[in-house]
Design a protein around this nucleic acid. Sequence first.
DNA 1: CTGATATAATTACATTTGCAACTACTAGAG
DNA 2: CTCTAGTAGTTGCAAATGTAATTATATCAG
Lengths: 155, 155
Amino acid sequence: MTQLDEARNSLWRLFLTVHTRLVEQVEQDLKQAGLPPFEWYDVLVALKQAPGRRLRLSELAEVLLVNRTNITRLADRLEKAGLIRREACVDDRRGAFAVLTKAGSAMQQKMWKVYSQSIAQYFGRYLTEADVAVFTRALSAMLAAVDNLESANDE
Amino acid sequence: MTQLDEARNSLWRLFLTVHTRLVEQVEQDLKQAGLPPFEWYDVLVALKQAPGRRLRLSELAEVLLVNRTNITRLADRLEKAGLIRREACVDDRRGAFAVLTKAGSAMQQKMWKVYSQSIAQYFGRYLTEADVAVFTRALSAMLAAVDNLESANDE
DNA sequence: CTGATATAATTACATTTGCAACTACTAGAG
DNA sequence: CTCTAGTAGTTGCAAATGTAATTATATCAG
């Protein structure tokens, strides 16, 4: 094993560690502000950006990288909290839409105020413009590769 | 919000996404090889590197960023699988050591063969030497900052 | 049209996690 | 010594997750 391989393996560990610690911190900030976990934020933003502020549960699952089972239950929780509602799908009667409610939209904005600050404080702050370019390129390459791999497995 | 902030926020999302996808892939590779989840690997390596191939459960918890409750149960699982064993601590009779067994050591090596390949394939491969330097510096800075923050909160 | 196959979402069950309470022990003030 | 506070590890309970099975509907070959 070369030295560069060693450096990469250490970096992998660092990557995992930083992820864990930053997520912990962000969650803590949200909790401290009396807000839901940031997983909910992802749902709210995804719906906000979608046409008609709605997405099929299956689409939501794909965007959030959450399996179907857990999307059902995540949607249950958000629906119970009044942030989304389910609507039947006319085209495909098996399906259901998750639709952003007014309360959900308000919650998204409220969460973003806290969340964006946390991102800046723990993450953005330590990245120069050049760093952002390097990270974005490398991480995008990794993502493209695994996504590709997965679609290849489907065949 | 400036453009750079936007780039950083997108990068944060990319960071989360890549983490999720890579961890999924690595876990899948291990599973496919009939091996335990990579969380177990962390335990095995931590013990392997420790003097006497043993660590107090609390030390293990700190290294692995796992809370006390979950270390107890993670140790339960590894112990049940024969990869570690608990030993009483003479100095502090409240405490317990986790000690690496021979089977645990063998498992660590077996897992590393698969795990290191996965890291290289999904992660290391996409990083030039310069990238590694940039990542390492930036992620280390983030980690130092949150660790610092935490110790400040203890006061 | 009909039957076989696939898909959307949900549900059942087992496992895992997080929080709070608990037990056993240590350490420090007086 | 003894009382109090703190720490190590575990346990109980509630919530969350993953896998497999289930229900209802769609699609497609013939």
